[in-house]
Design a protein around this nucleic acid. Structure first.
Lengths: 197, 197
DNA sequence: ACCTGAACACCGTTCAAGT
DNA sequence: ACCTGAACACCGTTCAAGT
């Protein structure tokens, strides 16, 4: 979305900035993202982005929020397996890892090092949305007595760590180009082995 | 290790730089690490670090290498359970996550975004050392017929993703101050459920 | 060997304008 | 409203020295 020299973005600038930032993150990583570079690539002055984002952090936060919203939406969608907790949990895990694979830039920003401002409060833990999807699917399985008993939170923790670990490996390219089917098998094995009774 | 104005570090500078960088990473994160800041804190000129490291990347690489070496050493150590694959695999996992907890700065640098230079070859995958510890423990369990059959690599992949996911959550403080015992229980559950026959 | 200081090309961010 | 250009304090990195 390169604009003519001197032209205006007419309200599209915000979107253009986010899209270009995502492109940079996808190819070069979060570290290489620079507001000035984005502005340059879009043909606007390096101050223009500040009309839409208070600072660089705000841009990253917006991208992370988008990512969490997309992920949550993707996890809520598959209600087909509402009656079968095992199938549902496997699907949730697969959707989670597939999200990381298909939205690498978003996932990187979502889990990029958080600002460790010693004074700042834990930012309302946005991971929790995805986490609660897992937890509630697990609670349902426990209600139906097909899942192990014990605190749903602890069981969900194990499942979350597992899919998050897989997602990190995928995003970092450590798994080569493993197939979605292979990932689903790993998740199925996990669910059947450690969650189901 | 602050030196007197004008004094020399007499060969200690390299160590001092690494230590100070680790301190900064531990409190402020990798993103906030700056060579100039380290030099300033150590009372040397901002060019001094270049005597010991070709560039910032080289400093981070050195820290990552140290971390991988320490982790490998920690994983090799516990041969006590050499005869019991289940106990050994649980211990390997616990040691892995405990390393992330007690060496947060190292772990952050080890798994900080790798430079995605499109041309650069995969850097001899240093994760593989830790990974192979798991894989060989798993292969031994398969030999004794107490672990599930199938490619040791795939089974190891699941275990690695699980402990790596746990480690990431610990390092990012998403698990609060979960006890080492609670983590060991999660790992035990994973091993017993998805690795053991 | 190890250190210094000036210099260059970059950043993020702010300010005072321009249309 | 949305954009521009100059300015400031930072970075990483290089160069030409100093002891």
């Amino acid at each position: 979305v390169r604009k003519k020299r001197g032209a205006y973005h007419h309200g599209q600038l915000r979107t253009a900035i986010v899209d270009d930032a995502l492109a940079i993150v996808a190819t070069d990583g979060v570290r290489r993202l620079s507001l000035r570079d984005v502005a340059r690539r879009l043909g606007v002055s390096h101050q223009a982005p500040y009309r839409h984002f208070a600072d660089k952090r705000a841009l990253l936060d917006a991208i992370a929020r988008d990512g969490f919203a997309m992920l949550t939406a993707a996890l809520v969608a598959p209600t087909e397996h509402a009656g079968d907790p095992t199938a549902r949990l496997i699907e949730l895990g697969s959707v989670y890892v597939e999200f990381a694979r298909s939205h690498t830039a978003h996932y990187r920003v979502m889990f990029a090092e958080v600002d460790t401002e010693s004074g700042s409060p834990p930012p309302e833990d946005e991971t929790s949305s995805a986490f609660h999807q897992l937890a509630s699917a697990i609670a349902e399985g426990q209600r139906q007595r097909v899942f192990v008993s014990g605190p749903a939170r602890d069981v969900a923790l194990a499942s979350f760590a597992f899919v998050h670990g897989l997602a990190m490996l995928v995003v970092d390219g450590k798994l080569g180009d493993i197939s979605a089917g292979a990932i689903e098998k790993l998740i199925e094995r996990h669910v059947v082995g450690t969650v189901r009774r």
